[in-house]
């Protein structure tokens, strides 16, 4: 009798936060398989990366309500087209941020009014506060990122920041920095490679 009760009990034992112990790739697989708990898996993915996606979108677009729309869009599109995430090509976080960045930049390009560009240039970069739930590794990583950025030349760094956080095209970056387009292209590439090398060392 006791044994039976135990069996029933074990059936109902569930982790406090479902999927908290799953890896990102496992989460993505649960979502892609349309597992009955797929929505809980998506919620866990959102719990892990919702802030990062929202933070990047807001940093690029400078508009909270549009940043919310982008965040919603990113997770709903992971839900609808989970096959677009290919774990062999990178991490889930990279994928979600890539989608968010491209949506944010599309929105910026579609409102290319000269006036709004001028306004944006005067806006300060929104500084973030790491959320309490950030994992320790992320705090270390943030420090590494700062150090890695410090190894770039000022020109490489400005070009990358204008393109990535400012949502500018390389042609616009060239105008902003008063440099030839070819120079901007190669600076961004060499800077990204340099960052990759430095970050790799800290891995």
């Amino acid at each position: 009798m006791t044994g039976m009760a135990l069996a029933v009990e074990t059936t109902y034992i569930a982790p406090l936060v479902p999927f908290a112990d799953h890896s990102d790739d496992e989460l993505a697989a649960v979502i892609a398989d349309r597992h009955p708990d797929a929505e809980a898996a998506l919620e866990e993915a959102y719990r892990r990366y919702g802030d990062a996606v929202f933070g990047l979108a807001l940093r690029v677009i400078h508009d909270r309500s549009l940043a919310e729309d982008i965040t919603q869009d990113v997770f709903v599109s992971l839900w609808r087209r989970p096959d677009r995430f290919d774990p062999s090509r990178g991490k889930l976080k990279t994928f979600l941020l890539t989608v968010a960045h491209s949506r944010a930049v599309d929105l910026i390009r579609s409102e290319q009014s000269r006036r709004s560009r001028e306004e944006r240039e005067h806006l300060k970069v929104v500084r973030s506060t790491p959320s309490i739930e950030d994992e320790v590794i992320d705090i270390h990583m943030a420090e590494h990122v700062r150090r890695a950025l410090d190894t770039l030349s000022i020109d490489e760094r400005r070009a990358i920041e204008l393109a990535y956080f400012g949502g500018q095209s390389y042609r616009q970056v060239a105008v902003t920095l008063n440099e030839p387009e070819g120079t901007v292209k190669s600076r961004i590439r060499s800077g990204m490679k340099q960052l990759g090398r430095v970050l790799e060392q800290h891995r």
Binding site: G50, D51, L56, V145, I160, Y164, L195
Partner: peptide
Amino acid sequence: MAQAELAA
């Protein structure tokens, strides 16, 4: 690089 995590 996009470490800036603002709370959603």
